[in-house]
Lab assay of single mutants.
Amino acid sequence: MVYKIRDKETGKVYEVTIDEETNEITVYDVKTGKPVKTVNMTIEELKEAGYEVEPV
């Protein structure tokens, strides 16, 4: 599923895909559409880390 996340401190917005089964999150560069990095976190962990998470 695709989400937009926003860093509450910097205001930067990222587009991510989240595999609900493995909790693998792939972060994409919004301008190029290319993957930047992959992390292993849940949506709740993202929120605790200071991100706003919205489904696209």
Rank of each mutant, 00 (worst) to 15 (best):
I5Y: 06
T38M: 09
P35I: 14
E24H: 10
E44G: 10
T38C: 13
K4M: 13
M1A: 10
L46F: 08
V39Q: 04
D19C: 09
P35G: 04
V16P: 00
K12L: 13
P35L: 13
V2C: 14
E15P: 04
D29W: 06
I25M: 12
E52I: 09
V13E: 11
E20Y: 13
Y14C: 15
E21F: 10
I25F: 04
D7F: 07
E54Q: 09
A49T: 08
Y3Q: 03
E20Q: 12
V36N: 03
E21T: 11
D29P: 01
P55F: 11
T17I: 11
M1W: 11
Y14P: 00
V13K: 03
K8P: 13
Y14F: 09
P35H: 10
E15Y: 15
P55Y: 09
N40V: 14
A49L: 13
E48C: 10
E21D: 11
K37F: 15
I25C: 07
I43F: 08
E15R: 12
G50S: 03
K37D: 04
V13C: 10
M41L: 08
T32A: 04
M41D: 01
E44C: 09
T42M: 02
I43D: 01
I5N: 00
Y3G: 01
G33D: 03
R6V: 12
E9M: 13
V53Y: 04
L46Q: 00
T10W: 01
D19L: 05
K47R: 12
E21Y: 11
K4T: 09
M41G: 09
E52Y: 06
D19W: 06
V39H: 05
Y51L: 03
K47Q: 11
E48M: 13
T22N: 13
V27P: 00
G33H: 09
K4H: 12
K37C: 15
K8V: 08
E9W: 13
T42I: 01
E45D: 12
T42S: 11
Y28G: 00
K47S: 09
E24T: 15
V2M: 13
E20D: 09
T26I: 09
A49R: 10
T22Y: 06
E21M: 11
I18V: 13
T38Q: 07
D7C: 15
T42Y: 02
P35E: 08
E44M: 10
V13L: 08
D7K: 02
K37R: 12
V27F: 15
E48P: 01
T17F: 10
V36T: 07
M1K: 15
Y3N: 01
T26V: 10
K47G: 08
I43V: 07
D19Y: 06
T26Y: 06
E52K: 04
I18Y: 15
V36A: 05
L46P: 00
Y28H: 06
G33F: 05
L46K: 00
I25K: 01
P55T: 09
V39E: 04
E45W: 06
V2A: 12
T26H: 08
M41I: 09
V56E: 07
E24S: 14
I18C: 06
Y51F: 11
L46E: 00
E54D: 07
V13A: 05
E54W: 15
K31M: 14
V53G: 02
E48T: 10
K37E: 06
K34E: 10
T17D: 03
Y51P: 01
P55E: 10
I18G: 00
I5A: 05
E44I: 09
N40G: 06
I25E: 00
I18D: 00
Y28C: 06
R6F: 09
E24Q: 14
G33N: 06
Y28P: 00
A49I: 08
Y3T: 04
T10R: 02
P55C: 11
E52A: 06
E9Y: 14
K31R: 07
K47T: 08
V53L: 10
G33P: 00
K8Q: 06
K34H: 11
Y14H: 02
P35Y: 14
V27R: 01
T17C: 09
G33K: 09
